[in-house]
């Protein structure tokens, strides 16, 4: 499963960078490359940049707090969602914005973004879950993993 993404630093408004203290997540792959903001699932405060209700927002990635009634997870299988197992949480579709994704040590390009689901817990706190599907042959060979994110507008 995709454990990290980056998005170009210039694509995130300054107010969001300041509000969520994203400066500490800035990376640069080479001296001439653009600055990127790194969003890792292992981060002490995992976040994801999403396009939701017509605007760019930085929202929590999954849920690791037991007092919340949202699922204790970071990803959600499309098949699980389609089976109706999460219907009690009233998930809504959301677009996760990303330029690059990380899977088992391999960084790969993401052209448009990743499909996600947003769930609000009993305190109306939002949680973002990245949608997963069975990996294509190419993705499986490239990363060595059998599940891949649901990419927007492309198949890797």
């Amino acid at each position: 499963m995709c454990t990290g993404i980056t998005i170009a630093w210039r694509d995130i408004p300054t107010r969001l960078i300041q509000k969520h203290q994203l400066d500490e997540r800035i990376i640069q792959r080479s001296a001439t490359a653009d600055k990127e903001i790194l969003f890792m699932q292992r981060h002490r405060q995992p976040l994801l940049p999403v396009f939701y209700q017509g605007e760019l927002r930085i929202l929590p990635w999954g849920n690791r707090q037991r007092h919340s009634n949202a699922p204790l997870a970071w990803w959600c299988e499309v098949a699980t969602l389609e089976s109706g197992a999460w219907s009690m949480y009233h998930p809504e579709p959301v677009e996760i914005l990303a330029n690059f994704g990380l899977e088992r040590g391999v960084w790969f390009q993401i052209r448009e973004g990743i499909q996600g689901a947003i769930i609000h817990d009993q305190h109306e706190q939002p949680c973002i879950y990245m949608l997963l599907q069975p990996a294509s042959h190419y993705y499986q060979v490239m990363t060595g993993y059998h599940r891949e994110p649901v990419f927007l507008g492309e198949q890797i």
Partner: peptide, 17 residues
């Protein structure tokens, strides 16, 4: 893809290997 400029980048073959 502007974001690839300056980035160490490799193009993979048809199998991804």
């Amino acid at each position: 893809s502007y974001s690839l400029r300056g980035v160490p980048c490799g193009v993979l073959g048809n199998q991804g290997a």
